[in-house]
Nucleic acid binder design. Structure first.
Lengths: 183, 183
DNA sequence: GACTAGGGTTCTGTATACGGAACCCTAGCG
DNA sequence: CGCTAGGGTTCCGTATACAGAACCCTAGTC
């Protein structure tokens, strides 16, 4: 295990800290709930550990996220945004594209701007509860009530705004490039 | 980290072995390519290790899969139908209705009839890969290619038929009354 | 039989992830 | 100032994941 460009352990640590903060949990509280040492959690969150799967799994439970969400290698995903909580439900890596299924949750009035994704990326949103307005690039805004679906090109900046009742939805992101970095 | 029901390390190990075999790689060849000890890989694959993220990341590259694919934890359990594999990704129980998010996978040509669900139940299907035909009751069949979405009333018998390339999709089921937990 | 080669497991010494104690803040209160 | 409490980090002894060597197959060839 020589020198590495990517440090998956450090990235997972940052994600743990982000989700913990988003949940309003103290480090001690999460350590207690997960049955993990306080010191271990501190060093893990600050990237000074290379955690084992057991440890991450123990943390995923109290944090309320699937284990894979802590391991996520898609960069630029903001899980630490008070206006947008994301949980990846599924990842499907194919030869020519990657499909991700995310659960989105936004507080009432929450607003989130997303930068452009990779060229050819498309998003499909199913609003489960509440309502949401999507602004895909310069196109006309889409007003989505509970139950509605929308689809747009995500390779340009776009924005979501939750309605007065907040929003819960499922977002399906299709990226046309293989997600697998070469060995 | 006392007694655990789930052993994410062992599950990841089994996945590594499965992917390695599928790639036609020997244990020694993968260990070499990943820069991981042969013995370490052996014990990891047989579930006698609790691997660190670094080790899994080193293996994910030569295996050509994203790291999360080795960690992926399916929470739901598949239904025993050779033509339809279902994984429940999410369950959202509200006061007046229940929203379930399912991942569906069907083999090429697979066909599945579904009986009528509770009155007022609606389904929304997003086809991720392959294609699918949906026959909602007596209405006209809906032909869905990859990326397409459809919505129909599910309180009457309906049927799905996968195309020649099989089908993977996300199904969102909204039931206006509290649904059976675990159903 | 001996010998070789490839695939996999077990052994061994070292590095490090672990839990937990000790410690370092900062804020609040007298 | 002292004292307390909560949040976080650093330190320490132990358990274990690590790399690599030694070993155990089985198949093939002579």
């Amino acid at each position: 295990m020589a020198d590495q460009v990517h440090r998956p352990g450090a990235e997972a640590g940052a994600r743990v800290r982000a989700v913990r903060r988003a949940r309003g949990l103290s480090l001690a509280a999460l350590a207690e709930a997960a049955g993990v040492g306080k010191g271990s959690l501190s060093e893990l969150e600050t990237g000074r550990r290379n955690p084992t799967l057991d440890t991450l799994y123990a943390l995923a439970g109290p944090l309320g996220v699937p284990l894979a969400a802590l391991v996520e290698d898609r960069d630029g995903v903001a899980v630490a945004d008070p206006d947008l909580e994301t949980v990846r439900l599924h990842l499907l890596a194919e030869a020519d594209r990657t499909v991700e299924v995310w659960l989105l949750r936004m507080p009432p009035g929450g607003r989130r701007r997303s930068p452009a994704h990779a060229p050819g990326t498309r998003e499909r949103l199913v609003v489960l509860t509440g309502s949401c307005r999507v602004e895909p690039g310069d196109d006309a805004p889409l007003e989505l009530a509970a139950g509605a679906t929308a689809e747009w090109a995500a390779d340009r900046p776009h924005a979501y705004t939750a309605g007065a009742g907040g929003m819960t939805g499922v977002d399906v992101i299709t990226t046309p490039a293989p997600a697998t970095p070469g060995g």
